[in-house]
Nucleic acid binder design. Sequence first.
RNA 1: GGGGGCGUGGUCUAGUGGUUAGGACGCCGGCCUUUCAAGCCGGAGGACACGGGUUCGAUUCCCGUCGCCCCUACCA
Length: 429
Amino acid sequence: MTMRVRFAPSPTGALHIGGARTALYNWLLARHAGGSLVLRVEDTDRERSTPENVAQIVDALGWLELGWDEGPFSQAERRPRHREEIDRLLGEGHAYLDEGAVRLRVPDAGETVVEDVIRGEVSFPHEAIDDFVIARSDGSPLYNLAVAVDDRDMGITHVVRGADHLSNTPRQILILRALGAEPPVYAHLPLLHGPDGKKLSKRHGAASVQELREAGYLPEAVRNYIALLGWGYDESTEFFTTPELVERFSLERVSKSPAVFDEKKLRWMNGHYLRQLDAGDLQQRLERRLDRPVPEAAVRIAQEKMQTLDDFWSLAAFLVEPQPDDPAAWDKVMTAGAPERLRRAREALASAEPFDADAVEQALRRVVDDLGVKPRDVYQPVRVAISGRTVSPGIFESVAVLGRDETLARIDRALERAEISTSAEPDMG
RNA sequence: GGGGGCGUGGUCUAGUGGUUAGGACGCCGGCCUUUCAAGCCGGAGGACACGGGUUCGAUUCCCGUCGCCCCUACCA
């Protein structure tokens, strides 16, 4: 029997990183087994489900490059089908009316056992399960009923979802059995928690896929990172290409304990992916994102220090157009001796030939030697003069990319300012 | 309250009845006679939640306790 899995988000909000991970695991399983992934939108809560949220989820999956084979199906649209089964359950005595609502008859004794791939056998005593409602008094079907009917109708072989559904599973099995169907294989993934240990919610930083995208993360990095939230392959491998993930992922190795989303590690991993991109590709992604052309040379030298796409602008905007000074950077670097060192740097750069990173480096090192100062005493004023900040791509590369004319012009402007501020504060050194 | 799940350094994880408990992020320090969120090197940090067992020996098996989470809705 070929594997059929499903991703069944409820469109009551944006797709969270936890949902994204569930989608990824299902996708990996389907790809690995040559089976199918069904996208089913569980929108039977008409109060909270919105078309905008559905669109957002579809969009997020698209960005993550997690395609599906069938769907998206709307659970709400399958209501007539659910109704049929509810009537059948009623007719066969498996369910009964209670103040208009329909309740499933749950045996008083015994237990229902969930065979979970990740957690083993989990038993639920029937005494702890009430005759639960499967249809509202207006006739509309409820979650557990809809899920059970849909999973069976759609031929789902493996239900892979968050552990928050484990307690609902015996109810779904009870419905399935009353319908005369065999339950699928279940696998309940460990939940994702926020840094405070609580269930992940909007309050926990960049928790939605949209926010991750806006923050400048790469879909391939996000996939790699979330794959590792609840799963590990061996004792040291951290990076997996998507084909490797398809090949190596297995439910048996999924862990049981909840994980916490750590954006710091995602940043690190994203930086690694960013550095592997070829400059042209990165340039295209940046231009699409910033909606403006950016020079390839600037992309090339910024690449080695970026961790997110968003970092590009703060790191290299000065290469695209003049940037205002960061006052703190100015104060820190433009001390009493700075103007003299800047003047010497200007002089050396004026005659550097050709104006490339090597020549710039030689020129500036000569200034350092001649003055007998520390390298940073020369480099930092130059850096602040051209970029306005204490952080930038490599200084020699930055100067070379900026070009001689622009570099000299910016140093001149800095010199003017430095002289004004130095004479205004004669005591400063 | 009832039922269920989970518990390896701050975080993600590997692992086994006998290991110096491995890797990664983060953190700290050094190097790159330049900043740095990059790179390289080094370091601190865990007696594997706690208490009992079983065992020659338990992080690994059993029981209990505690903690956290989930379900217990005419939400999903």
